[in-house]
Design a protein around this nucleic acid. Structure first.
Length: 804
DNA sequence: GAATGGCCCGGCTGC
DNA sequence: CGGGCCATTC
């Protein structure tokens, strides 16, 4: 039962009892409180609900103090959502002190308290992949290691694998010459990170784990008894370090509650070990086991399709997913001519859905790899369908964003050499590579950071006067920022850095649309700092740079998903844990999905690909399209692909096979018995005809130019969509208001710069104007051959041919 | 020391 | 195809 707590009146009136809200096994999982417990939660079986209610139950009924309760989620977004739901159940007071977060965020937070036990300085920073690579590049230089003989990718991969097992450099015993090199890099890398007062993602976990498992340290004892209950979501994707960690943290009470679905384990390449969840009961003989097997999310046809794909998987925890939901519409399996045809088909269906009143936020497009997003983006953009791409070139990986972040990091933690090197000459201040190398040499001679080495180097006789001067100027500048940081808010500091380093001026001087985009990104970054300040104040904390930087380092791709009315485009990996009413699963071809790496040493794991397909399918609530293309441009060349083996695993009776018109026009004049324009709803193509695997062997891949594939308007889940009034939804892009100086619509257009005009740009060549605004310093969207449409100031364009 | 162009090589998933 | 690195040139 869920009773409001006696003190305070946080719980809303009539908070429902668990039994009223959750169904049988869900209620079991939420209400049973003592000892270890594993919940095998099938896709769409309501596990988030179970965890939320369980926490609410622990807080409200069992009076567990919120600060003694740890819930680990897979993304920050999931953590935020869980908190929001809990606030509605038990009130914000209790939720504020809960520990809810990802493994990395939780460890970072714990490490902030116990940094000394980990041998770190107070303002340690978290290095991301880029930073790690930068450090390793230095290590390679120092140790004179040949990247050709020992590719950095491999060496770093090896180090990472060691760390995912909880091992650090000192634990690594090389057993051959190659491993000896790895070992040297490992040690040097670790030393550099320690010297920079930095940790990488794996360190965050390992450092905390080492404290937790240290029987001698008082910090360890504190952590081992800190939490009364530990809950872990998406447990199928934990690695061994994470498992040891939650075991250690729940050591005192053994109240370890984990929820997962071994069928959805898709991060093995990142160290996840699905056997951990499968063996949970062996490790914990007293564990209670609950299985949630009823799917509440998807139409019966979608569930059947998902089961068809996952059934052949080896080594599953036995379970039977089922549903009470209506069959709904068929799963459409659509054969396309090319990736453009595929994108056009997707765009058309989305258009129809939107015309029928479906919010774009209810629609998602999935792909196996980011590279597939480009064509989809181009087509959606030209169709004016609002979309957002999750992941890909991520916001915090953009050069200008990283630059500002690096400035902040150097101010917060001057020991961070990779950040110093990044910004020491951006904007250009005449400090070249040679000077930087001398600085690095000086630093290692003196055994100090590069920042600390600036003064001695300036006083030495190793530099010419101009270089000395430039360095001194830089040093003074940074010292100023450090002073400012003592009193100013993070946002003020960021703004002053942008202004006083000349960074903004540099971009403004460039005047290109690219530079303008960068300015917008910086604005957005400043905005995110502001947001952080608000959040910190709301949580009664003092906002500081270190706090902001930590947040920045730990954002997950899925955290970027905004609740905006836009179609979401993402990889299947990023889709985990999400759900959408309408889902397009693109690129279902052999070698694409299942993905096959060119590099045979990284041979893919078919089992994991299968689970990945299962995850993708189970995201759909009402309607699913599975698309595959005959030919696809891959890294410059055209690849002819067969339909994925997973398509052959779909039960025949739940799918409808279709082909786009482009494909029919190219390959099957006589296949199309209905004649052109007859618009048959489904065109059976029986992939089963070819071979035991039932794959369609493609025959005539000489389709015409890309265009709109078309089949009939779809019906979803019994609903039929009447052709609605067409409307155009503006893709208002990322540009916040105020940055685009819009003029009244009747303002004069710059001469000849109208839609359709042919123009020339000195970098992009000849292009056609797709769109132009009316400002005096107008911006046009131009399609240049070989480029996606670009926004460019018309003053950089020259008219080649006017529209008559 | 900076800017530009050409060449080569990699080629997924991401905290 | 595209990014990153290197060499050449100003």
């Amino acid at each position: 039962m869920l009773n409001p707590p006696s003190s305070g009146s946080q719980a809303p009136e009539g908070a429902p009892a668990i039994a009223d809200v959750l169904n049988g096994p869900q209620a079991d999982a939420a209400a049973h409180v003592d000892g270890p417990m594993v919940v095998f939660a099938g896709a769409g079986s309501g596990k988030t609900r179970v965890i939320t209610y369980r926490i609410a139950n622990l807080l409200a009924t069992h009076r567990v103090p919120p600060y003694r309760l740890l819930a680990v989620t897979f993304t920050n977004k999931a953590a935020g959502e869980m908190k929001r739901r809990l606030e509605n159940l038990v009130g914000p007071e209790l939720v504020r002190d809960l520990w809810v977060g990802t493994f990395h965020a939780t460890c970072a937070r714990l490490l902030r308290r116990h940094y000394e036990a980990a041998g770190l300085g107070k303002n340690f920073i978290v290095y991301d992949d880029d930073d790690q690579r930068a450090v390793m590049t230095r290590v390679y230089k120092d140790l004179r290691i040949d990247d050709k003989r020992h590719p950095m990718r491999q060496v770093m991969g090896r180090i990472q694998r060691e760390k995912q097992d909880g091992l650090l450099a000192a634990d690594f015993i090389p057993s051959n010459p190659i491993e000896a090199v790895v070992s040297r890099c490992f040690s040097a890398y670790e030393e550099r990170l320690m010297a920079a007062n930095a940790v990488d993602f794996d360190d965050l976990l390992i450092r905390v784990l080492r404290i937790v498992e240290d029987q001698q340290s008082s910090a360890g004892a504190e952590l081992r008894r800190k939490f009364v209950h530990v809950l872990v979501d998406e447990f199928q994707d934990v690695n061994r370090v994470q498992y040891r960690l939650v075991r250690g943290l729940s050591h005192k009470t053994h109240n370890l509650f984990v929820v997962g679905d071994d069928d959805q384990s898709i991060y093995r390449w990142r160290g996840a070990d699905v056997t951990i969840v499968r063996n949970f009961r062996k490790d914990h003989p007293d564990a209670k086991i609950v299985k949630l097997e009823q799917n509440y999310r998807s139409s019966a046809n979608v569930v059947a399709a998902a089961l068809g794909v996952i059934k052949p998987a080896a080594d599953r925890e036995p379970k039977e997913l089922w549903t009470d939901n209506v069959p709904g519409d068929h799963v459409d399996v659509v054969a396309c001519a090319s990736e453009r045809d595929e994108a056009a088909f997707v765009a058309e269906r989305i258009r129809e859905l939107m015309d029928a009143g479906v919010s774009p936020a209810e629609i998602a497009v999935f792909y196996r790899v980011h590279a597939q997003s480009r064509v989809l983006e181009e087509v959606l953009r030209s169709e004016r369908i609002p979309y957002q791409v999750i992941g890909g070139v991520r916001f915090f990986e953009r050069a200008e964003v990283k630059d500002l972040v690096s400035y902040l990091r150097v101010v917060s933690n001057p020991k961070s050499d990779v950040d110093l090197v990044r910004i020491i000459n951006v904007p250009s201040r005449k400090i070249g590579d040679t000077t930087v190398e001398k600085l690095a040499a000086m630093a290692s001679e003196l055994g100090v950071s590069m920042f600390e080495a600036i003064e001695p180097l300036v006083r030495s006789d190793r530099l010419g006067t101009p270089a000395k001067k430039a360095l001194a100027v830089f040093h003074t500048l940074m010292a100023q920022f450090t002073t400012i940081a003592d009193t100013a808010s993070p946002r003020e500091l960021a703004e002053r850095i942008l202004a006083e380093t000349g960074y903004v001026a540099m971009l403004e001087a460039q005047g290109t649309d690219e530079a303008e985009g960068r300015l917008l990104n910086l604005q957005e970054l400043v905005g995110s700092i502001e947001e952080y300040e608000r959040e910190a104040l709301a949580a009664e904390e003092v906002p500081n740079i270190a706090g902001y930087l930590e947040k920045v380092a730990l954002v997950a791709v899925t955290d970027e998903l905004k609740d905006a009315p836009r179609v979401a485009m993402m990889t299947v990996h990023a889709a985990k844990g999400l759900e959408f009413s309408f889902v397009f699963l693109t690129g279902m071809e052999e070698d694409m999905f299942p993905f096959r790496s060119q590099d045979p040493s990284r041979s893919g794991d078919i089992e994991e690909e299968r689970r990945l397909a299962y995850v993708a399918i189970t995201r759909a609530r009402l309607k699913l399209w599975i698309l595959h293309a005959e030919r696809r441009m891959v890294f410059g060349g055209t690849k002819y692909g067969m339909a994925s083996r997973f398509i052959a695993d779909l039960p025949r009776d739940v799918i409808a096979e279709k082909r786009t018109e482009v494909l029919r026009a190219s390959a099957g004049r006589f296949i199309d018995r209905d004649g052109w324009g007859a618009s048959s709803r489904s065109e059976p193509t029986r992939p089963g005809a070819a071979g035991a695997q039932g794959r369609l062997a493609w025959s005539h891949p000489q389709a015409g130019p890309a265009g709109g594939g078309a089949t009939r308007p779809v019906t979803a889940s019994g609903r039929s969509f009447e052709p609605g009034e067409r409307y155009v939804e503006r893709d208002d892009d990322a540009a916040p208001q105020g940055f685009r100086r819009r003029m009244p619509p009747d303002a004069p257009r710059p001469g000849g710069m109208v839609v359709g005009a042919k123009v020339e740009h000195k970098t992009f060549g000849i292009g056609v104007i797709l769109e132009v605004d009316n400002a005096p310093d107008a911006t046009a969207t131009v399609k240049f051959s070989g480029w996606s449409p670009k926004r460019i100031k018309v003053r950089f364009l020259e008219i080649v041919r006017e529209i008559g």
